[in-house]
């Protein structure tokens, strides 16, 4: 069994699951069907998710406006500080984004097993790949019913790892490297991230790659929001409640 998939072979009481803390939080009988609910995402994970989401929205809008500014303003330059304000918001959101990500990494050590899922892809496990291909088949309408998962399904986990871990790291590194151009040589930003600029082929190139990174994240958000809503309706477990109050309910007690 993976950490992610629910054993759930027998009706409750649930069999001893592999994952720690996987004892059902409550079991409700509703409309003749038994709903088993588990506490999955602890408060710091949920907080990070929403802070991160807000940061991404702010960063994408301000970032786009930095590359393609508003139409020009008239009057004296001392009357306005539009670009300055947009850049300030972008940099502030960037700091929050980075600090939240560091906090999220630390919580992976402190939190429950689902707090670690984001950073670990168990590609050596057969069950991971079974879940991965089953999910692909489910999305390709080749399977009438998906599998059950306590945390993320392997396909979602892969996407999250690539975009939200590797992508975030890429955006933080390129972002702070670009920021260091303003803070100047000798600043901690320059000492820590300045090497990124010659490595990727110059300032212009880093700007372009940072911009492409934004589009990659926007694509991810489109797919993420769609699949979450779809899964919330069509899969065998709830999605939106898991990231709002932390509880995930299963709609059936069937085995895998």
């Amino acid at each position: 069994m993976t950490d992610a998939s629910l054993p759930g072979t027998a009706p409750p009481p649930a069999p001893a699951p592999a994952a720690a803390g996987a004892a059902p939080a409550e079991e409700v009988v509703k409309g003749g069907k038994q709903l088993t609910t588990f506490y999955i995402y602890e408060a710091p994970v949920r907080l990070w998710h929403w802070v991160n989401a807000l940061c991404i929205v702010v960063l994408c809008i301000t970032g786009y406006l930095i590359a393609s500014p508003f139409p020009t303003l008239s009057g004296q330059p001392s009357d306005h500080y539009l670009m300055g304000t947009i850049r300030f918001i972008h940099f502030s959101a960037g700091y929050i984004f980075a600090v939240a990500f560091i906090g999220r990494i630390l919580w992976a050590f402190a939190g429950n097993t689902y707090a670690r899922e984001l950073f670990t892809l168990p590609v050596w496990k057969k069950s991971f790949w079974r879940g991965f291909f089953t999910e692909i088949a489910w999305y390709a309408f080749l399977k009438p019913r998906p599998m059950k998962f306590m945390g993320h399904n392997p396909l979602a986990q892969t996407f999250l790892f690539v975009v939200m871990v590797l992508g975030t790291i890429f955006m933080i590194f390129t972002g702070f490297a670009l920021y260091s151009e303003g803070t100047g040589l000798g600043s901690w930003q320059s000492r820590m991230f300045g090497w990124v600029i010659p490595l990727l082929g110059g300032s212009m190139q880093v700007h372009t790659l940072h911009h492409i990174g934004m589009w990659a994240i926007i694509l991810f958000v489109i797919v993420h929001v769609y699949t979450v809503i779809r899964e919330d309706i069509m899969s065998r477990q709830t999605m939106i409640s898991a990231i709002t109050n932390g509880y995930r309910s299963f709609r059936d007690n069937d085995p895998d």
Partner: peptide
């Protein structure tokens, strides 16, 4: 440039999502 490629990709993915959602609804 990055914006043209990004917008095109967003349109393709958005369209894909819409089609997928429609098929999902029909299946359901």
């Amino acid at each position: 440039n990055a914006d043209k490629v990004g917008l095109a990709a967003a349109a393709v993915v958005g369209g894909g999502v819409a089609v997928h959602a429609a098929v999902s609804a029909l299946k359901r």
